[in-house]
Simulated scan of single mutants.
Amino acid sequence: MEANTDARPWRDIVHNGLWKQNAGVVQLLGLCPVLAVSTSVVNGVSLGLATTLVTTVSGAAVATFRHTIPNEIRNPVFIMLIAALVTCVDLAMNAWMHSLYLVLGIFIPLITTNCIVMARAEAYASRNTVPEAALDGLMMGLGLTGVLGILGGMRELIGRGTLFSGAELVLGDIGHALVLHVVPPAFNYQFLLALLPPGAFFGLALLIAGKNYLDARARKRASLPAATDNETVSA
């Protein structure tokens, strides 16, 4: 019993970050990168993983120093800490993934102002232990990465007829072999609406609707045993 009690908070953190409080389709935070960068799987997942790194490390750092930072200046300190981490990520991508860095552009430095990072630092990391804050940041980041990857895949598939285009930006020349051409290149297929901002809004709306449908279905399924038990007692 004690082991189950101890494990439950960790399961809740994972469930909240990946599904129940997903930053992309529930909290609707960080919509700027969600809508602007999700033109392909590679772009979306790359920025999502960069954001995940920042949320994880910043969460752990804020939790570490939460008792030593005066309450009056905690927000400026959090912002400085997050900005320092984002600068490290920005410089690392510029040095080792320069082609991808040029594609993502301003959205890497803008992680500093991403509401997800600051919100988790203020609402969760500053009130919980280091392991819990780190796991929360990791799960929130991975939840956003999942949304970016799925939305990017939808837009790329409908807009260009491909999947994983731009993989060479991350993996080098070997990445060309990973590109899937669902529509043969000879057709020169392109559906521009999916690649423009309206396509991002439509795609995100479909993801939100899909999650709400699955949640409603799960609630209905959970209520069936209770209704069956009540009918049995009545009988």
Score class of each variant (00 low, 15 high):
V42N: 02
Y189P: 05
D90L: 07
G161Y: 00
V77M: 10
I108E: 01
L148M: 14
L171K: 10
C115Q: 01
A133Q: 02
P70W: 01
M118L: 15
V183I: 12
C32V: 15
I111F: 00
L192C: 04
A134S: 11
A121F: 00
H67A: 15
N4R: 15
T232K: 13
G137R: 02
T112L: 05
S234A: 10
A209T: 14
I13G: 03
T228Q: 15
R217Y: 11
G153R: 05
P131R: 09
I108W: 01
H181N: 10
A194R: 03
V103M: 11
D173F: 04
E168C: 10
A194V: 02
Q21L: 15
L196S: 12
D173T: 14
Y124I: 14
S38K: 02
L144I: 11
L31F: 04
G143N: 06
P33H: 06
R66A: 08
E231A: 14
V42K: 01
N22G: 07
E132R: 14
L35N: 05
P197V: 08
L104S: 05
L193P: 00
N4T: 13
G137S: 09
A205C: 07
G48M: 07
A226E: 13
V37D: 02
L91I: 12
S40N: 05
L148C: 10
N212E: 14
L157C: 07
G210Q: 10
Y124G: 06
V77N: 10
H181M: 05
V57M: 08
H67K: 14
S223V: 06
M118H: 03
N75K: 10
A119Q: 03
D229W: 06
L110K: 04
E2W: 06
A121T: 05
Y213F: 15
L196V: 10
A3G: 08
S58T: 07
N43P: 02
T112P: 01
A216M: 09
L18F: 06
G105N: 07
I79Q: 04
Q21K: 15
L163S: 09
G153Q: 04
N4A: 15
A63C: 04
A23M: 12
R11W: 09
R219N: 15
L18E: 05
T64H: 06
Q21D: 15
L144R: 08
H176D: 10
L49Q: 04
G48A: 12
T52D: 07
L171H: 12
R217G: 12
A167N: 08
F191E: 07
R8W: 03
M140K: 07
E231L: 13
D12P: 00
P76M: 09
F65E: 03
D90A: 08
S234K: 11
T87D: 02
R217D: 11
G105K: 10
T87V: 06
I208F: 11
A95V: 03
L85T: 02
Y124F: 13
H176T: 11
Y101V: 06
R219V: 14
P185K: 05
D6A: 15
I174K: 14
T5G: 12
T39Y: 01
